[in-house]
């Protein structure tokens, strides 16, 4: 094997992964945490499917569906920012990151309206086991959205291409969790 071949071929399977290995460890960890939470949610539902269905009817499905579009569009802008920075379009990349952050803010605003509605109806974590999981899972996810917005802000300042890629990967993880959380909590009645 020549030296050129050795350089061009991946050393091991981990080298194939795009971006930072630690970010992938974080992505897998978060998927495991949320995955366990969603499995527990459906596991507890077995004992009271009608109660869960009735509780789920109090959720705002349209708002949550809108939030899905908001988050995947935000992820699209973050992914574009990585490509734009690689192409040397630094200013455009920053604007894309700022737009992605703003859409993250829109997601939180819609989520805030949803939580406020529940509070007005007197629905809390102790109302029904469904709502305990609802607040736990969606609240924990919202905390990740806040963290993601901060990270996107930081990588918009320190905007080396590989740093933006890591920040965007965290944002895509938030996106990935939501596309699983939304159908399970909001749609599987």
């Amino acid at each position: 094997m020549t030296e050129t071949q050795a350089r061009s071929e991946p050393r091991n399977a981990l080298d194939e992964l795009p971006g930072e290995l630690l970010m992938w460890v974080l992505i897998v960890s978060e998927l495991l945490v949320f995955g366990a939470g969603l499995a527990a949610f459906l596991g507890v539902r077995i004992s009271d499917p009608f109660g869960f269905a009735e509780a789920q009817d109090h959720l705002h499905r349209t708002g949550a569906a809108l939030n899905t579009v908001v988050l995947i569009t935000s992820g699209f802008l973050a992914a574009r920012a990585v490509q734009l920075r690689r192409n040397g379009q630094r200013t455009m990349a920053r604007w894309h990151l700022i737009a992605a952050m703003l859409l993250g803010g829109v997601f939180l605003w819609i989520k805030g309206i949803e939580f406020a509605e529940k509070a007005e109806q007197g629905i809390g974590v102790e109302t029904h086991p469904f709502f305990m999981f609802y607040y736990l899972l969606t609240g924990f996810h919202a905390a990740h959205v806040v963290a993601g917005i901060v990270i996107l802000g930081l990588v918009a300042i320190w905007d080396e291409a590989h740093i933006i890629e890591v920040g965007a990967a965290f944002w895509h993880m938030v996106d990935l969790v939501w596309v699983l959380l939304f159908p399970v909590v909001y749609l599987l009645a």
Binding site: A13, E16, L17, P18, G19, I27, I72, G75, F76, A78, A79, A168, A169, H172, D175, L176, V179, L180, F182, P183, V184, L187, L188
Partner: peptide, 26 residues
């Protein structure tokens, strides 16, 4: 159908947004 659509969305995010199209085995 709901879970199938969710799985398809995750596939797209992993492959295109997170760049796993560059690592087919992963």
């Amino acid at each position: 159908a709901t879970l199938l659509v969710a799985w398809m969305k995750m596939r797209v995010i992993l492959s295109r947004y997170l760049g796993l199209w560059r690592a087919p085995s992963w």
